[in-house]
Design a protein around this nucleic acid. Structure first.
Lengths: 345, 345
DNA sequence: TTTAGCACTCCATTTCTTCGAGTGCTAAAT
DNA sequence: ATTTAGCACTCGAAGAAATGGAGTGCTAAA
C-alpha cells in the first residue's frame, strides 16, 4: 500500500498531539485539524496501524505512534524548527559562561541544555589523543619546593607546587629544565615513564628523585586529560514526565544515566545530529527512550557530543532545534581564538 | 508522667522497627522483643502517644515515631554504632582518591558517602577568606604570549597562558614581575582591581594593558576560589524510598537538592556532628526530611561539611557512624602534610 | 500490674459497576 | 470510488461497594 499525502498529514497530527498530551489520540481531534470527517480519518488510521506506523494500546483507544511512525515523522514530516532570535540569544547567553575547567564548562552546558529542553542532558568530550608536554618550566620557591609549569601541546597550561625530598639550589635548575625539555617533551605519558626509567642509573640519585617527581606529575596530567569527560545533568526532569512517574523506571534510567560513562553517548557518524528512537538504541536500558545527540567541534579536529535523553514521546522538533543551537554555540565557543578559546589551568 | 525505662525500651523498638520496615509497628511485634504481653505494650504505647513520642496514623493502626520520638531516640536511646574495621577500611579506600581539583574531590566524596549510606549526600567546602596572591611569575612563550603563574597564600598554584595584545621582549618581563610582586601581592581581589585602576595613568599604556591582563586573571582566580563549593550526589537514592515513591515529592526534593547551593547545608556550631529531624529543619522543603551533617577540617582552621539527606525515618545510627567515618577520613586527608595535602592546580 | 479475651475500627485490597471515548462496520450520499 | 453519518460494540478508567485482617481499647481475671 502506498502511503498517501493525507496519511502523512494524519500521522503528523497524531505524533504532534501525542507528544503534547501523552494520551492516545482519537479520530475526532484529527478530523478537526484536517478538514475531513472522523470516519474518514478512522479509515486512514486503520491503514496506518496496518502499515506499522501507529499502534493501538487496546481496541477502543486512540492511536499512538510506533517507533517506525516517529522515525517517519522525524525523517520527513517534522518541520525543522527555526529558533527565534530571542531564543538563540538566550542559548548563547547561557553558554557565555566563564571558561574555566573543562569539566565545569561541560557540566554547565549540560545544565543549560537540560533547563532549556526539559529533559535530562549529557555532554561528553573526548580526551585529547596524542597529547604531550610541549615545554617544562621550573620556578624555585624555597629550597625544598618548586613550582613545575607544564605547557601542553594543546596550549593548556598546568602547574603545581612540588615539595622536594632534597633541597635544590637556584643554579641547579636550568640544567634540569633543559634535560626535561630535551628528553620529555612531545611524547606520551607512557613513553615519559619509560625514558624516566632508562635514566634511573644514568644520573645521580638526587637528580633522579627530582626528575621523577616532575615527570610523574607531567605523566599524571597527560593521563588525566587524555580521558573522556562525561557529564549528565537534569536527571530529575524525568520525574515530570508521565512515562516515568513510576519510581522504579525513573530510578533505573537515572542510575543508568549517572553510571554509564561510556555506553550512553550515542556515536555519531559525521552528520551533525542524530536521533535515536526507542528500540533503535543499542543499550536496552534505553529501550523505550529516545536520544537526540548533536556534536560540536572542540579545537583540533576533535568532536564532543551533547545529547538529550527523553521518552520516545519527545518533542523532537523542539529538542533538535535547541540542541543544534547549543552545539553551534559550543563550537563557536571552542573555536573562538583558533584553539581552545581560553585555557583553563 | 515520668518516662520509665521500659517506655524507652519500647520507643526504641518502635523506632528501629519503623526504620526497617517503613510500616507502622504494632504491639505484637514489640511484645516479642521485650518479654511482656502485647496488652501491656499497648498500654505503654498509649502513654507514649499521650506524651507525644509516637503518633498513630489512624485509630486501628500501629504506631509511628514522631519527630520528638526520633529526637529522644537519637539523644538517648541510639547505640553509637562502631564501624567494623573492614568498614572503616572500605571508607578509607573510597576516599583514597587522587587529590586533584577540589570540586572533583568533593564530588567523589559525596558519591562515596551516598553509595555507602544509600541516601542522597552533599558536601560543602567554604571558600578561603583572606586569600591573596603571594607571588607572581611570568614565563615568556612567544612574543605575543606568556604564562602567568600565581602562587596563592594557601600554597595553591594557578597558571594560564595569556595571549597578549602587544608583543613583549624577554627583558621587559623582570620589571613587570617585580611591580606585580610589590604592588599586587597579599591583597584581596577587590583591592587588586583598585590598585590597578590607580596605576592606569601612572604607567605607559602598553604596560598597563599587560598588567591589566595579568592582574585581572589573578583577581578572577581569587574570586573563584573564595566561593563556596557545593556538591550533591546520589539524589536518585530517594526514589528507592517508599516515602518518595510519589514522583512529585521526589522531584521537589531533588530540585531543592540540586538548586539550593546555600540554604541546604545545615550550619554546625562546633560539635562534630549534628542531626536535624523533620521540622527541626529551617527550610520547609526539608520539612519531612532529616539531615545528618558532620564537619571535617580543611587546612588552616576552615571546616567543610558533609551531610546526608533522607526521610525522617532514617537509620540514624548507621548514617551517623558512617558519616563520621567519612568526616574523619576527610580531615585526615586534608591534614596530611600540614596544609592542603597536595595542591591541585 | 499484668494479661487474656473480645468487640470494634478502619484501612488496604479486591471486586463489581458505571461511564464514555473511541472504534469498526454498514449503508447512504457525493 | 470516496466520503460521511449512524450505530452497536469494546474496553479501560474511575468510582462504589464488599471483604479481610491487623491492630486497637477496654474489661475482667490472674
Amino acid at each position: 500500500m502506498e502511503i498517501s499525502e493525507r496519511k502523512k498529514q494524519i500521522l503528523k497530527a497524531v505524533v504532534e498531539n501525542y507528544v503534547a498530551t501523552a494520551e492516545p489520540v482519537g479520530s475526532k481531534a484529527i478530523a478537526a485539524e484536517i478538514g475531513v470527517s472522523s470516519a474518514t480519518v478512522r479509515n486512514e488510521l486503520a491503514d496506518l496501524v496496518e502499515l506499522g506506523y501507529l499502534e493501538q494500546p487496546h481496541t477502543s483507544a486512540g492511536r499512538v505512534p510506533s517507533p517506525k511512525g516517529y522515525r517517519l515523522y522525524v525523517n520527513e514530516l517534522m518541520e525543522r524548527q527555526r529558533l527565534s532570535i530571542a531564543e538563540t540569544e538566550k542559548i548563547n547567553d547561557a553558554l557565555r559562561l566563564k571558561m574555566e575547567e573543562l569539566d565545569r564548562l561541560l557540566s554547565q552546558a549540560g545544565q543549560a541544555v537540560s533547563r532549556y529542553v526539559n529533559y535530562p542532558a549529557y555532554v561528553a568530550a573526548a580526551g585529547k589523543r596524542g597529547l604531550a608536554v610541549q615545554r617544562f618550566e621550573l620556578l624555585r620557591m624555597e629550597p625544598q619546593s618548586l613550582i613545575a609549569v607544564l605547557m601542553l601541546s594543546d596550549q593548556r597550561v598546568r602547574s603545581q607546587l612540588l615539595h622536594l625530598q632534597l633541597p635544590v639550589e637556584a643554579e641547579q635548575l636550568p640544567p634540569v629544565t633543559k634535560l626535561l625539555n630535551e628528553s620529555f617533551t612531545g611524547i606520551s605519558a607512557r613513553e615519559m615513564n619509560l625514558r624516566l626509567m632508562a635514566l634511573s642509573d644514568a644520573v645521580p640519585p638526587a637528580l633522579f628523585l627530582l626528575l621523577n617527581q616532575i615527570v610523574s606529575y607531567g605523566a599524571d596530567q597527560l593521563e588525566e586529560l587524555g580521558q573522556k569527560t562525561f557529564v549528565t545533568a537534569g536527571a530529575r526532569e524525568l520525574l515530570k514526565l508521565p512515562e516515568f512517574r513510576d519510581a522504579d523506571k525513573a530510578h533505573q534510567l537515572m542510575s543508568f544515566l549517572s553510571d554509564s560513562t561510556e555506553k550512553l553517548p550515542v556515536p555519531d557518524d559525521g552528520s551533525p545530529m542524530k536521533i535515536l528512537i526507542g528500540p533503535e538504541n543499542v543499550s536496552d536500558a534505553l529501550h523505550d527512550t529516545s536520544v537526540v545527540v548533536a556534536s560540536y567541534d572542540i579545537g583540533d579536529d576533535m568532536r564532543g557530543l551533547i545529547g538529550v535523553v527523553g521518552p520516545t514521546r519527545m518533542d523532537y522538533a523542539a529538542v533538535a532545534a535547541r540542541l543544534s543551537g547549543f552545539a553551534e554555540g559550543l563550537t563557536r565557543m571552542f573555536g573562538k581564538n583558533g584553539l581552545p578559546p581560553k585555557e583553563e589551568q
